[in-house]
Each structure stands twice: as C-alpha cells, then as structure tokens.
Simulated scan of single mutants.
Amino acid sequence: MDSDSKTSTVRSLDRINLRLAADTFAEIDAACAARPGNVSRNTWIAEAVQEKLAREPRTAAQSPERRAHG
C-alpha cells in the first residue's frame, strides 16, 4: 500500500477499547475531580498519552503518520 492510499484512510479522531483495572479508573477519576472545571476521563487519558509521547525519543519510525497506524 502506498503512502497516498494510507493517508486517505486516516481519520483525525478514532476510537479504541482500553482495558484498565478498576483501581486505575478510580485514580483517573480522582485526578479529573481534583482539576478545576470539568475534565472528562477521555480528556485526561488523551493528555496523559500526549505527555508520554512528548517524553519518548523520536525516530523516523515514530513519525506522526506511523504512530497513527499503531
């Protein structure tokens, strides 16, 4: 598959199923509640993923297009 056909199938937002222990969800919910305003669990997890990605060393294999496809 060439890069043009790959790019055409990438969506700006996509859904995943995420399995976490109940105590992890409780910790996330507590962190959300401790922040000012209304921060959803989804927003908190998305921010955590972005923070982790920002700390990871970046290589050619980890370009934004590559990460989007897993």
Rank of each mutant, 00 (worst) to 15 (best):
D14Q: 14
N42K: 12
D14K: 13
A26Q: 14
A21Q: 13
L53K: 07
I28G: 03
C32F: 02
I28F: 09
A26P: 11
E51L: 02
R58I: 01
R41S: 03
L13T: 08
R11S: 09
M1G: 11
T24E: 14
P36S: 12
T59R: 02
A68F: 05
A60C: 09
D29H: 04
S63G: 09
D29S: 03
S8K: 15
N38M: 11
A30N: 08
A33R: 08
A54H: 03
R66C: 08
N38F: 07
D2K: 09
A54G: 01
V49Y: 02
A68R: 07
A61V: 01
A22F: 07
D29P: 03
P36G: 12
Q50C: 06
I45P: 02
L53P: 06
K52V: 00
R58T: 02
D14W: 06
A46H: 05
R58W: 01
A46Q: 14
V10N: 10
V10P: 05
R35W: 10
D23S: 14
A46L: 06
D2I: 08
R66F: 01
V49E: 00
W44A: 09
R11E: 11
T7G: 06
R15Q: 13
V49T: 03
N17R: 14
Q50I: 06
A31T: 04
C32K: 07
I28P: 08
S3E: 09
G70Y: 00
R41Q: 08
C32Y: 05
S12Q: 13
N42R: 10
D2Q: 06
R35T: 05
L53E: 10
A22E: 11
K6F: 15
P64K: 05
E47V: 01
A68V: 08
E51C: 01
Q62P: 05
R67I: 04
K52P: 00
R66L: 08
R19W: 11
G70Q: 02
L13R: 10
S5I: 12
R35M: 10
E56P: 00
L53I: 07
T59F: 03
R11D: 12
V10I: 13
E27T: 11
S5H: 12
A26N: 15
K6A: 11
A26E: 15
E51K: 00
E51S: 05
A26W: 09
R19S: 12
I45E: 04
P57G: 01
P36Q: 03
S12R: 14
Q50R: 14
T24F: 11
I28Y: 03
R35G: 04
T7S: 11
E65M: 06
P57I: 00
E65D: 11
A61G: 02
G37K: 04
S40I: 11
A54I: 00
A30F: 01
R15T: 13
T9C: 07
A21D: 15
L13Q: 09
